[in-house]
Nucleic acid binder design. Structure first.
Lengths: 213, 213
DNA sequence: AGGTGTTTGAAACTTACGTTTTAATTTGAC
DNA sequence: GTCAAATTAAAACGTAAGTTTCAAACACCT
């Protein structure tokens, strides 16, 4: 057929990624996917086994490299003489997200939105398979943030990391709470450069704010 | 039958609220709802018309009062002589959320989670019906934050409000990004008092952080 | 008590879903 | 070119979904 038309598996993954983000897992039918991917209905079950397995495949295709990129950035940062700073740590997460968001070949910002959706939906995939698979990720960041912000108690630091990663994920996913209420939403809310420009100072301020007594 | 057993409509709403949060709109069937609510299957369509209308009813039952409570807090704050502070403004939103979260009779923290889920899922209900219905909410906060933080440019302020409301919603919804990766999640992540203790300083720091050049 | 409008109950209807099956087609090695 | 394996195509299967129907039960007013 055509030269640069991706193969069946890739076409299914690409279309699924987009549709899962747009409509969610449950509301996306295999017939929608196979129709838009221009493949036969049975192709999904043939190549992936089930709709659940397809979802996992869509997910792991992007998450693995993203985590790897963060860990690689952490390696570089920890190679420096002086210990990691909060800003340096935040950027080890921001940069891979930004890179992913700007690369259409890797799904652009789609995957971060999918990740965000899946998180909120509390999928069993995240609770079971992935949680222990990427436990190194959280472990490394926990240790590094303890070094970068030693003046914070363990409880406070855990909470701030929780809040910081939450707001970062949300920002990259383009989740705009205020858009429900506002007619004029932020026009640049999904421009990756703009995200970083405003997100990083916000997160850093929250992370490094002096503890209240 | 029993004395304090709520009527059919209320039982349906209560069960729906919980199930929509747990499984999402699409994955929650009317048969699940009517079974747990101990009402007939046809009762949903009789009282609400459709599953979509039921969802809207579940939603508006809580959102209206929550918005009203925020606006009432804003009224009080704006009645003071000196203009509103960022902290005062944040608290006008935090207090009603906290109050809702602590009140089981009003669904406790369930509704905030439903709101968060619905936001991320980008339901048409939020895009269409509710957006203009509660536009006063965003309008009032926009004006008030402009007064409280006059040194920020309009762009920066919009972004910070966007990020601040995002992290506040997320915190109250108990969305824990790191829980995918960590075995030991924050145990207190859904204790309302703990949320406020750590959330408010974080958000305030982000909102009032000096602008970078 | 009788009668009217409202609510509930049980069943069926239509549709769409994920999956399976079987045959046709294509691919790749010898 | 041939044959076996892998892939695609088309159709059907069983199930569960939202909705509708219609009769029975209930509530309320005079």
């Amino acid at each position: 057929m055509e030269a640069n038309r991706p193969d069946t598996v890739t076409r299914i993954l690409d279309v699924s990624e987009r549709l899962f983000v747009e409509h969610g897992f449950e509301a996306t039918s295999l017939r929608m996917i196979t129709q838009q991917a221009e493949v036969n209905l049975a192709a999904v079950n043939y190549h992936f086994g089930s709709k659940d397995a397809l979802f996992e495949a869509v997910f792991t295709r992007r998450l693995g490299p993203l985590i790897e990129a963060c860990l690689a950035e952490l390696d570089v940062l920890e190679g420096n003489k002086e210990g990691p700073t909060a800003e340096g740590l935040v950027m080890t997460f921001i940069r891979p997200c930004l890179s992913l968001s700007k690369d259409p070949a890797r799904g652009g910002a789609l995957f971060v939105r999918l990740l965000s959706r899946t998180l909120v939906e509390n999928h069993r995939l995240l609770r079971e398979s992935l949680s222990q698979q990427y436990s190194e990720f959280a472990q490394r960041y926990s240790v590094a943030f303890r070094q970068a912000l030693p003046e914070l108690s363990l409880e406070t630091l855990s909470w701030r990391m929780h809040l910081a990663f939450g707001v970062m994920f949300n920002a990259f996913a383009g989740n705009d709470v205020l858009k429900i209420f506002m007619r004029s939403q932020i026009v640049s809310a999904r421009d990756p450069e703009m995200i970083v420009k405003h997100l990083v100072p916000f997160v850093l301020a929250g992370l490094t704010s002096p503890v209240q007594e």
